[in-house]
């Protein structure tokens, strides 16, 4: 993201000079740019910024389904901070995010490293790992709920060969985390693999050749050259995963048979689901809006932590 801003600020070569002539041309040159960018700002204003600001406004009210409301200040936020269901949702969201993201990014890096070789049928392999991304999201939830079935699921059937019997994947918190993270990883590892692959291909090859001459093994090369060079890519993917992962909604909902509570003890309820439940099932628009803002805050905080950790891990400044 930082890189973007730098390019944005770079001075432009060859400005488009308005041709001399009629007022029409001058108007064209002056107004056109604004006209062209205005659709985005207008739409964002109406369907992005306004809802955002209004969400905050609503969150300061007791606001019911019929639109009756009265100002309550920060009371919704106060309630939220002592609401065990909210913190349960936060725990679930963060836990699933971590359980999903860490193996996902490691796996993606590992796969990208494999794809970054001279390969036959290169495109086929690349498409193969990317295919899960184009599956309908609700379909993923439905298919995996069956795979994770307690009595007749394929995964439990495989596990019984290892002596593990009939895990009730919906019943426990850890098992819901595992199952839902598996869905997320299945869907997104391939995408991140390609991003890493792109990053790897941009690393100058003579770095590896020099290392090889020095007798460094492939593994050493991977950790000494590949990983540090991928620093910007790692940061990019982890931020993208943060924004997506913390908004997790459809997969846990499908896994819990459309129940917004995400299980009898809310084992799989994410913050997004809790927001939906508050607003669209219990019709506390004010409270739901407060949850939405807390979610936003959570995303920012985690993205920051993420940034700091990856920066530290990758060992250096960005």
């Amino acid at each position: 993201m930082t890189l973007d801003l730098q390019t944005a600020a770079r001075p432009k070569p060859a400005p488009a000079r308005p041709p001399r002539g009629a007022w029409r041309n001058r108007l064209d040159a002056k107004a056109s740019p604004y006209l062209y960018i205005s659709p985005f700002y207008l739409l964002f204003l109406a369907f992005g910024l306004f809802p955002l600001g209004y969400t905050f406004w609503v969150s300061l009210h007791h606001w019911d389904i019929l639109g009756n409301n009265h100002y309550t200040g920060l009371r919704n936020y106060q309630l939220l901070l002592t609401d065990p269901d909210f913190w349960n949702a936060v725990t679930n969201t963060v836990a699933m995010f971590v359980i999903a993201t860490v193996p996902q990014l490691l796996g993606a890096m590992f796969l990208a490293n494999a794809l970054n070789r001279k390969l036959r049928a290169q495109t086929l392999f690349r498409m193969g790992v990317l295919a899960p991304m184009v599956t309908s999201v609700a379909a993923v939830g439905i298919v995996f709920s069956q795979l994770f079935g307690r009595d007749y699921g394929l995964i439990n059937w495989l596990l019984h060969f290892a002596g593990v019997h009939n895990i009730d994947w919906q019943a426990h918190q850890w098992s819901q985390w595992t199952a839902i993270s598996t869905m997320v990883d299945w869907r997104w590892t391939g995408y991140n693999t390609l991003i890493f692959l792109a990053g790897m291909q941009a690393i100058p090859r003579d770095l590896y050749e020099a290392a090889a001459i020095d007798g460094a093994s492939r593994r050493v090369q991977f950790w000494r050259i590949t990983v540090p060079s991928l620093r910007p890519t790692i940061i990019f993917t982890s931020i993208v995963s943060t924004i997506g992962g913390l908004q997790l909604f459809t997969e846990p909902l499908m896994f819990n048979q459309n129940l917004m509570q995400g299980g009898s003890l809310r084992q799989g309820q994410t913050v997004a689901m809790y927001m939906y439940e508050s607003a669209f099932q219990r019709f506390q628009y004010g409270y739901g809006s407060a949850v939405a803002w807390m979610l936003f805050l959570l995303i920012i905080i985690i993205a920051l932590i993420n940034y700091l950790i990856t920066r530290r891990l990758a060992g250096g400044r960005i």
Partner: peptide, 8 residues
Amino acid sequence: KLQSFTDA
């Protein structure tokens, strides 16, 4: 231990 109205 089955939940009503589910596929299980």
